[in-house]
Amino acid sequence: MTQPPKGARRSYGVKTAPYGFLLPAALLFLLFFALPIGYALWLSVHKVEIKGLGLGKGAKSEVWAGLENYGSALADPEFLGSALRVLGYGALVVPVMLGLALLFALLLDSERVRGRSFARLAIFLPYAVPGVIAAVLWGFLYLPDVSPFHFLLEKAGLPQPDLMDGGPLYLAMSNIAVWGGTGFNMIVIYTSLRALPTEVFEAAKLDGCSELQIALRIKIPMVMPSLVLTFFFSIIATLQVFNEPMTLKPLTNGIPSTWSPLMKVYNDAFTGGNIYAASATAVVLALATFALSFALLRISNRRTTQGAGR
């Protein structure tokens, strides 16, 4: 580190200015991001030791636990079960939601469509409804005794499936996510479709390409980067699903308190009062999300750079 000469005060000020500007953001990052993460890590390697009845002063003390919490988090069948449930749920949600988003984006982008801005708004609107409220609304529609669908099915003499239990529960839960998430992903894909150069399509048309072929052969490969992006967001959102199952839980016997990994973390921390185990589970979940996202990114990056040919 070289000390600036005394006469160079001004240039010193200019050189440090960027760090001054960075300071607020860095401080906020430290206080509200790095610090809590660090605290969670610290908690995850500690535990409480209780003596006897655990009543009164000094009966509880915080001690070092090493990797014990991680061991029990990974060995917990509830955690594994919740992870599997969420993967099943994600296998339904992600393809359907992104497929619909792409379809809507391509339809809106095609030349013959009418009422474009209205349709765009209508598809996007559910995204503006908070997840908890969406879950409550759908919950009312699913409950056999109050659902208008069940009422109509009964009038028509058709069987009425119980959507709040077993296999259909996954459909019911996925439906809420698809309903709420399609609009956002559609906007992302649509925006990148609008940014594509039109000469390419004109050239294709002159060569006798149909709208469908343009969509399949030109548009989709060219918006691949935004598809990857939306895929990513969807995977992360799936692993972190919490609002919907938590809101639907009191309405049915079919959703256990550890349905999704985050519900398990919440349950450990706030009903079991064990923030140490909960922190360890949260760290495991974060690492898994990170690893999954990173692996998928690597694969898709290779694909898109080859496929788009730009």
Binding site: F140, L143, P144, D145, P250, L251, T252, N253
Partner: peptide
């Protein structure tokens, strides 16, 4: 066998 405190 259904829970209490639901709309149903």
């Amino acid at each position: 066998n259904q829970p209490m405190y639901t709309p149903a």
